[in-house]
Nucleic acid binder design. Structure first.
Length: 395
DNA sequence: ATGTTC
């Protein structure tokens, strides 16, 4: 389990790595190799690795890294990316699945709301990537309608959560904002930024704005979905997982690792498996106040193209779930890359965290409608025109 | 992941 605690040890000594998974967990060798590489970066003191660990572009996803130096590449381009959970005041008996799925297609169009006003309210420049506010983006991002399947801890009642409560679960990030911040710093500072330096402070300021932008984005996405479903929402938890924070003279980086200082932390399954709501115990300092953010990828996107969805009938299968749920994803490649088979078993990930004493499971959440991407309109020709006009702005 | 391939 890595090296013992040390203080002012020479740079050639690797940081300690605490792994919160078991021999039966699906952990790729490439991911643990990346962990070792991060442990050998100058100034890295301690690493917590979680059961959703998998290889990433700049380092492993599913870990927290405590370091003397600031490494923007450990956070990546999607600064502030996270999961937000909202409770809907809509009774499940009123929900018509196919009708609701059709209504959620509105999420694909540009948001016509007061982006500037919301941005200003969040302390952000009113023109900061305002065109993209309320948009989900690509990759693993989604907006999912869920229902609470089971309550497994009394903590749920304190949050007014009960079986059959409908939820909106939004996974999205800072879109072009975070990418812009990341590009402005990463090529020039491969060896990380020194604590207290102008570059570090500038990055942290920009980072904090991207985190606020991403959080607002998730809230607007949920508001749009709630309006489409003619319901009100309240926030249950806002849980970022690509963030860095100051801890004294050190930097605590989280990459695909949820901040575990909130009362509840959501753990995303796939669109055809349960998500979970966790209550962090906070009793293991070596976990660096972090938890898994989801089930984690099992197979990379490219290899998924050879695994599923080669026939039309198999792609049609991917638009329905074993829970009787619906998937809105008109993009064939995205449908395949994000197939449920691409992900680890979320229940196993949850069990690993619970058995390591990091969390208790409060609720299991069943997916009903997963919105990914719509290219087919929601039924009116005006939708097509709106898209066309939006695209023209960039010509 | 990405105003992605404007």
């Amino acid at each position: 389990m890595g090296n013992p605690e040390r203080d002012g040890a020479p740079a050639e000594t690797a940081a300690s790595i605490h792994e919160f998974y078991t021999a039966s967990s699906w952990i790729e060798g490439a991911a643990t190799e990346q962990l070792r590489q991060v442990a050998n970066l100058p100034g890295v003191r301690q690493i917590a690795a979680f059961p959703d660990l998998h290889p990433g572009t700049f380092g492993p996803i599913g870990c927290a890294v405590l370091s003397e130096r600031l490494y923007p590449q450990l956070i990546g381009n999607d600064i502030g990316c996270g999961m937000s959970l909202f409770a809907l005041d809509l009774p499940r008996s009123k929900l018509r699945l196919d009708r609701a799925a059709q209504k959620l297609r509105v999420l694909e169009s540009a948001w016509s709301g007061n982006a500037a006003g919301y941005l200003a309210e969040a302390g952000l420049p009113s023109d900061a990537f305002s065109e993209a506010i309320g948009s989900i983006g690509g990759g693993n991002h989604f907006c999912e309608l869920q229902v609470i399947e089971e309550i497994t801890d009394d903590a749920a009642s304190g949050h007014d959560l009960a079986p059959q409560t409908l939820l909106l679960f939004v996974h999205s990030g800072s879109r072009g904002f975070g990418t812009h911040v990341f590009r402005s710093v990463v090529e020039r500072f491969a060896d990380g930024l020194e604590q207290g330096s102008t570059a570090a402070n500038r990055y942290l300021d920009d980072h904090d704005r991207a985190v606020a932008w991403a959080s607002l984005n998730r809230r607007i996405i949920a508001l749009r979905a709630a309006v489409a479903l003619r319901a009100d929402i309240r926030t249950v938890v806002d849980s970022p997982h690509n963030v860095v924070e100051r801890q004294g003279d050190l930097f605590l980086h989280r990459k695909g690792a949820a901040v575990a200082t909130t009362p509840l932390v959501p753990l995303a399954g796939s669109r055809d498996s349960l998500s979970f709501l966790l209550k962090p115990t906070g009793c293991k300092p070596e976990a660096l106040a972090s938890l898994s953010h989801g089930s984690g990828r099992k197979y990379d996107r490219k290899s998924m193209l050879g695994r599923v969805g080669s026939t039309r009938s198999d792609r049609e299968r991917l638009l329905r779930t074993s829970f009787g749920g619906r998937v809105i994803c008109d993009d064939r490649q995205l449908l395949i890359e994000e197939a449920p088979d691409a992900y680890k078993n979320s229940a196993h990930v949850c069990d690993d965290l619970v058995s390591h004493g990091l969390a208790t499971c409060v609720a299991s959440l069943q997916p009903l409608i997963t919105f990914k991407k719509a290219t087919e309109p929601e039924g009116t020709e005006s939708w097509k025109r709106q898209r066309k006009d939006h695209g023209r702005k960039w010509r």
